[in-house]
């Protein structure tokens, strides 16, 4: 299975503070990987490097064999954990924005997803509730036919009903030629999605492997492994 993403000994520090310390990670086509760790563990830094927003100090990052940059941005569909859409936009403007800039954007698929989630295209982005905003962002992100989806805390601050909708949407979007990296600290809600998990602590991957193998090996759920690994974090 050819890797969609390869990270080799990736280091990143901010003003002397180490955020990533020698991260190695490989993501094959068609896999869903859970990047698990508490706040401040380096998940967002790693994801931003993959999205091409920040640059590693050392190590190698390859996305479909390419260094992060203009070309890889066309291959990676990124959902940040912040409110990244312009406040002047209506939902319709955001759809047009994605449609204009991403060749792999499927407008019809986006509209289907928005209808499924009950989002009105005429709504102003700044007036959306946190849950509605997350759903809109997710619909825009998943409506791209990308090689790699990178979702940073897609469930953060979302009520349980909305969480189910979001998880169902992610599931319905699965394709064999695309891969997902989902970062979260809310493990129980999404652990059924993961093929592989990587536990990240203080900028290092301290445990990774096939989700099912880890469950059998340790006789516990991924959520309980998470609690065990990060008990003192």
């Amino acid at each position: 299975m050819k890797a969609v993403l390869e990270l080799r000994d990736v280091h990143k520090s901010f003003m002397g503070k180490k955020a990533l310390q020698g991260v190695d990670l490989s993501v094959g086509a068609g896999s869903v990987i859970g990047l698990l760790g508490p706040n401040g563990s380096g998940k967002t830094t790693l994801i931003k490097i993959i999205a091409g927003l920040i640059k590693q100090n050392a190590g190698e990052v390859k996305i479909c064999g390419l260094n992060p940059g203009e070309e890889t941005k066309a291959l990676v569909s990124y959902l940040p954990d912040t409110q990244h859409l312009y406040k002047w936009m209506r939902v319709e403007d955001a759809i047009c924005f994605y449609d204009d800039f991403f060749e792999d954007f499927d407008r019809l698929r986006c509209e289907e997803l928005l209808d499924y989630m009950g989002i009105d295209r005429a709504d102003k982005v700044k007036d959306l509730s946190k849950g509605m905003y997350e759903k809109t962002s997710l619909a825009l992100t998943l409506a791209r036919q990308s090689r790699l989806y990178v979702l940073d805390e897609p469930l953060g601050g979302i009520d349980p009903v909305a969480r189910d909708t979001i998880i169902d949407t992610i599931l319905s979007n699965y394709r064999e030629d695309s891969s997902f990296i989902i970062s979260t600290h809310l493990v129980s809600d999404v652990e059924r999605l993961f093929d592989t998990v990587a536990f990240i602590k203080e900028g290092k991957i301290i445990l990774d492997g096939e989700a099912e193998e880890l469950r059998i090996e340790r006789s516990m759920s991924i959520e309980n492994i998470y609690k065990e690994v990060f008990r003192n974090a």
Binding site: L53, T82, L85, Y86
Partner: peptide, 10 residues
């Protein structure tokens, strides 16, 4: 935060 939209366009 809008930078995370603008600077991820190809």
């Amino acid at each position: 935060d809008t930078g995370q939209l603008l600077f991820t366009v190809p």
